[in-house]
Design a binder for these strands. Sequence first.
DNA 1: GAGTCGTGGGA
DNA 2: TTCCCAAGACT
Length: 376
Amino acid sequence: MKQNQPESLPRPEADWVRKIQKELLTWYDQNRRGLPWRENKDPYRIWVSEIMLQQTRVDTVIPYYEQFVSAFPTVKDLAEAPEDQVIKAWEGLGYYSRARNLHAAAKEVMEQYKGEIPREPEKISRLKGVGSYTAGAILSIAYDLPVPAVDGNVMRVLSRWFAWWEDISKAATRRRMEAVDRELIPAERPGDFNQAMMELGALICTPVSPSCDTCPVRELCQAQAEGLQEELPVKKKGKPPVPMEVTFGWIRRGDQVLLHRRPQGGLLGGMWGLPTIEHWQGSLSLGEALKTSLAELGLKVEPGSILGELEHVFSHRRWYVTVVEALEISGEDLTEDYRWVQESELDNYALPNVYRKAVQLATERQYAAGIQGRLF
DNA sequence: GAGTCGTGGGA
DNA sequence: TTCCCAAGACT
């Protein structure tokens, strides 16, 4: 590990900057991928793509993007859509607050900006879900404004170009990199230049085993010159997910199943799923936990068999899930965040993947049990 | 500044 | 299996 750089920021010379701009844009013109959000410069479509691409791979986003802009072609369509429909279109993509924020921001654009996504950095940054990177991406790509769009790709590229040893997991580093990046952006094609930086990071200047052989700017890269490309960028490691034991209830009343809407704000906040009890290892037996929890709602159930187990990993949590079957004995009116749903209607709900997996598991076991019951 | 917030893919 | 992620934002 090398020493940290002093406080000063890299000061690229004007001649170096001109070369970088020319080589990068030439390379981009010849190597850019034909992505669906690059078909035009509709600010709304650029916006949708940038939100979906936050912490999400291009290949994962493409089908969601196609379906989303087909369902909501304009910011007006999105603003007028029911939230359930917007969340349903996001099902399986993760980070669901992105969808809620995007929906709320679309309404804001309609009400405050007459349906036109604002061109001012201060205004666009005020929209929910639009941070420093996303604001810069939309303004530069859709409106040709020379503002930085510094994402993980760009930070990696800058870190290597300047042999910059600051930890890119820190917010302060991003701000400092934006200051330097701002000096690199050409007045003519700011959007293409920003995309070229990201494209280089995605295709050539990759996190591991970068393809320096075919890099269009290898002559201008300090890390390459010093053989440091594998050491940079510096990035502090995250903590492993905390393991948790979780019980899902597969609670039936005739051909209906009980769904629960998770509280806003937390993990999978506001999303529908099976009734869920999260507990530390060994704190409660599964059936008793379920029974006790539901009794507080005025719902009496008789715990049945264990339908199965599954494991699901989130960014910061690992769920060891046991799906427990139960039959309703008696119940009063439940609160709004509980709902009895026909099994055939489950597909109409936006269920996060962990619950989708559990539903599949439960229905399969249920079917198998039914067959067994008839046979024996 | 450090945690929180999903998912699926690849080394 | 385990780890690191992939075009970050919000609290």
